[in-house]
């Protein structure tokens, strides 16, 4: 290593900024993931509805979104929507909208796989005790799907949380943006990025740990 002197003072001086930025990232992720999961569940329902006019457009949406770079979608929503008369979104809402739409495509695939992997016998058992379709969905399909998809969901959650770093590209003051500012203002390159990396890692592990607890709590014998 060259004669680089570590100096973490700037990090402590900016510590509140870093923590606030981390909170911002977590907040963006929580909002987008909640909305994305709800939308994704609807899309998954459309995918398995057996109706072509519902299934095909959703399939196309999922494929298009998953094959388009997130950064492009962020710019498209942030700079493009005002072009067609939608001015109401600030950068935060714009980012949440984008990540929601992006997350929904991934969640749709996770939920669809979960729903189709529920053994038919359980649905038949539900029919046999006289549950209506809506009741079967509420009491049989959803709880089972939730448990089956938990591991895949936690992978998606962590991956989408990391994607909040892209909000820096439209100047949302989250971790990456903050690190870059500290880097630019103080030239404490390694300290700034090391701090951001460690905070991201810590948050990712925290999410993973929390979701593993949920998984264990809802584990079922298969």
């Amino acid at each position: 290593m060259i004669d680089y002197q570590f100096n973490f003072d700037v990090i402590w001086r900016n510590w509140d900024n870093f923590l606030g930025a981390l909170g911002m990232g977590l907040g963006l992720a929580a909002a987008s993931l909640t909305l994305g999961a709800i939308l994704g569940l609807g899309l998954a329902a459309a995918r398995i509805s057996g109706k072509r006019w519902l299934d095909r457009p959703v399939w196309l949406y999922v494929e298009l979104v998953r094959n388009t770079p997130l950064l492009l979608l962020i710019f498209f929503v942030y700079f493009g929507l005002p072009e067609i008369g939608i001015y109401v979104l600030d950068k935060y809402h714009s980012f949440i909208l984008t990540l929601t739409l992006y997350a929904a495509a991934y969640m749709c695939e996770v939920f669809r796989a979960g729903l189709t992997s529920i053994p038919n016998g359980y649905l038949e058992a539900g029919k046999a005790i006289g549950l209506r379709p809506a009741q079967r969905a509420r009491y049989v399909m959803l709880p089972m799907m939730f448990r089956i998809t938990l591991p895949a969901m936690s992978n998606n959650f962590i991956s989408l949380f990391k994607d909040t770093s892209l909000a820096a590209a439209i100047a949302v003051p989250e971790l990456t943006f903050t690190a870059r500012q500290v880097n630019a203002n103080t030239f404490r390159v390694v300290e700034a990025w090391l701090t951001a990396s460690i905070l991201y890692l810590a948050a990712a592990y925290l999410i993973a740990w929390a979701l593993r607890r949920v998984e264990r709590r809802y584990a079922m014998i298969r």
Partner: peptide, 18 residues
Amino acid sequence: GVPVLVLILFCYYGLALF
């Protein structure tokens, strides 16, 4: 565990130090 963008920026600004 670290976002790709952070890896990229870390490399971009960091490697110059070497």
